[in-house]
Write a protein that binds this DNA or RNA. Structure first.
Lengths: 247, 247
DNA sequence: GGGGCTTTGTATGCTTGCTAACAGACATCG
DNA sequence: CGATGTCTGTTAGCAAGCATACAAAGCCCC
């Protein structure tokens, strides 16, 4: 009970709210937990709730009729997802699935709308979130339009490093474990191609990889290959990137 | 002066406002007109204003370093654009250019923010708009990921027909005049390919085309080819689709 | 600790669609 | 009305990356 409240408070969207308001939100929302690789919601389901991931990790996906998957975004603890349910209660077009054992809080859409009406801050926060994610999607669209398979993969690795990177003695290790298939599903390619390209990168000394594990050795060289400014070097003592990002 | 006000009122986002509030908005905003094929704003420009198109037609584009263009959206009268300037005053990532002689009203971003703070209705409206556009982009991303060149073109034609279609005796004529190059820039293809595919479609009796002109003869067959439900038949007397859409 | 699932490695066509290169038709504007 | 720019049509060659087909190695759960 008070745990749910605690989780709500951790979402920076709600940090301005009074305890009373939070409690109200808490009463109307519901906590659930899911084990690894379980769907949280499915396409064509009624989209009447917004979700807050409180622990674990999830991904937002789309599936074509013939079974091809694309990953639209990853979700980290403290992030809201399925947020387009606020706009109009239609049906989901995508589905959300846990990557690791996770817990979420479900907030009814109308409750959320009401909250937005009463708190311009929350409203603005939501708007910004949706807008930022839109920008990210637009960026991906452009990448898909103009970049080769390899360059898109490079971009992805750099983004992942920024969000999920942990510094090591040799470079940066991704704390999110993805298969080649997953990577392919993000950049819109095939598993085989990703395997090959990653293999090349390893030969070139840019990365090192293990099973579902990638370590980036030369972020600067990767970045310059796609005209992107290199990420700032990060000390081992630094915390992993603050999460508000998705892909 | 009162003309600007009149235009503001025509934007459904503002229709709930009192005349006083509108006048306030009016004082702070500025009207400008642009002739055909003129940039309204450019990439890397300071993004401190939101635009309302009051007449004409425009497109939102992205240009790669090596000169390849992609069209992100078309803008119709009454529509807001450049709206991500509300989120944070960074730099534009895209540019907007008129397709026809146009007039716009520039609304300062902070003015807009203030308005949103004071009027939850406006805020919600903006959120919905950004969200809907995000959905549209996501749809395009999926199309690009999974569909062939031809199928993407088919989708585009159907969408354009919905937004800009005027019924004729033989089918539906697009009231927006686009070159093959433009179409290619929307679906992420090349001019040559679009020419060829459109040629095929014409041979198959699906469409008829002239210079910068396309008439869709068999929307149902087009639609079924991409598993899309056929658009509702529209009487000649009906008005063209209400505009809140973009691509 | 063994069976089965998951993940990765690798090679060979083949297809789509891009590049490049012209040519003609139409339009617009002085 | 001529000239220049825009738009469309067409082709051949080429390259990226997909589909397909196996194979082997790790990992996890029973």
């Amino acid at each position: 009970m008070s745990e749910k409240l605690w989780h709500l408070k951790r979402c920076n969207l709600f940090e301005q709210l009074t305890t009373d308001q939070l409690r109200r939100l808490e009463v109307h929302s519901r906590a659930r937990s899911f084990s690894r690789r379980t769907p949280i919601y499915l396409p064509a389901e009624e989209a009447d709730s917004v979700f807050l991931l409180t622990s674990g990790r999830a991904k937002i996906c789309h599936l074509t009729p013939d079974g091809k998957q694309s990953i639209l975004a990853f979700v980290e603890p403290g992030e809201l997802f399925g947020e387009l349910a606020i706009l109009d209660a239609g049906q989901r077009e995508e589905y959300a699935e846990t990557i690791e054992n996770s817990t979420v809080v479900m907030i009814p859409g109308d409750e959320m709308q009401q909250l937005m009406q009463q708190h311009p801050q929350v409203s603005l926060g939501i708007t910004k979130m949706i807008g930022l994610r839109r920008r990210r999607i637009e960026q991906r669209l452009k990448n898909l339009l103009f970049l080769s398979n390899r360059d898109r993969l490079t971009h992805l690795l750099l983004e992942l490093a920024e969000q999920y990177g942990r510094p090591t003695s040799d470079g940066t290790e991704l704390t999110i474990r993805l298969s080649h298939q997953d990577l392919a599903n993000v950049i819109g390619s095939t598993r085989e191609t990703v395997t090959v390209v990653l293999g090349e990168m390893q030969l070139e000394g840019l990365i090192r990889m293990g099973r579902r594990k990638i370590e980036i050795l030369q972020a600067d060289r990767l970045a310059s290959a796609v005209h992107r400014k290199a990420p700032p070097p990060r000390r081992v003592s630094d915390q992993p990137a603050a999460a508000h990002g998705t892909t």
